[in-house]
């Protein structure tokens, strides 16, 4: 049933700008880095002389973090907006499907779209590096970590935005919270380790990115379950 629901979710976002957004996010991040490296090539190539690729990946990851935060809010808002527009919730929920699974499918769709977005960072970054004429070994593990770890560590926010956007027909509040979240995440490294806004930056006292990822996944699951329970209990108007 879950697969069926997900296939329906994918069918519903056909011909929607959502897909464009999924591509534009990582493309924008890498394009800005192309400008950055294009303008300050001499300075940056000296700064990262002992690892051009790592320097590029570091710069991409800083910018990708903000893009991830705003992106997850927009994706949640747009995917829920499809239902709010004509109040299609009441049609879907009058069908023989479990309410929890309907919410779960929405969440999975968001995760899937963000996963595609994150994945695209890899080829885009590689293309930029090659275009800049970088040689030497590509730190592929580092690149993959940069692409996927922040998304996993940001799961609580994916769940919060998904929940808010689904619960509220007016998307102004979820979007505001999403933007505030993005700003908070920009200063993530200033926070103590227990603050979730810090986790996607993968920084912590023990220098173990997987700790941030683990915390994100656990809290994400908790927030998701809360959102699902509230949704399943709520009357559909």
């Amino acid at each position: 049933m879950m697969l069926r629901l997900l296939s329906v979710e994918l069918l519903k976002i056909r011909k929607k700008l959502l897909w464009l957004l999924v591509v534009i996010g990582p493309l924008g991040v890498v394009s800005l880095q192309a400008v950055n490296f294009g303008l300050r090539y001499d300075y940056l190539s000296k700064l990262y002389a002992d690892g051009l690729w790592s320097g590029l990946i570091l710069n991409v990851s800083n910018l990708a973090l903000s893009a991830l935060f705003i992106g997850l809010a927009i994706v949640a808002s747009m995917s829920a907006g499809i239902e709010h527009q004509t109040n299609a919730w009441k049609m879907t929920l009058a069908l023989p499907v479990s309410k929890g699974q309907v919410f779960g499918a929405k969440f999975l769709l968001n995760v899937l779209l963000l996963f595609v977005s994150s994945s695209l960072l890899v080829p885009f970054t590689l293309a930029l590096g090659w275009a800049l004429g970088f040689d030497g070994p590509i730190p592929i593990a580092e690149l993959l970590r940069t692409a996927y770890y922040p998304l996993l560590a940001a799961m609580p926010f994916v769940a919060v935005q998904c929940g808010l956007s689904v619960h509220l027909a007016n998307q102004a509040l979820p979007m505001t919270i999403g933007i505030v979240g993005m700003i908070a995440a920009m200063f993530g490294s200033w926070f103590p380790d227990w603050v979730p806004w810090k986790w996607p930056s993968l920084l912590n006292a023990s220098h173990e990115p997987l700790l941030s990822v683990g915390l994100g996944l656990v809290l994400g699951a908790v927030v998701f379950l809360v959102g699902m329970t509230v949704f399943a209990r709520k009357d559909v108007t």
Binding site: R4, L5, S7, V8, L11, K12, R14, K15, K16, I82, Q85, T86, N87, A88, W89, K90, M91, T92, L95, P96, V97
Partner: peptide, 21 residues
């Protein structure tokens, strides 16, 4: 009032419900 997905065709709208049923 009816619920539908405006950007989809009638067939696609029905397909959404058909898959769930």
């Amino acid at each position: 009032y009816p619920s539908y997905y405006g950007h989809l065709t009638a067939k696609e709208n029905l397909e959404v419900v058909r898959r769930l049923l």
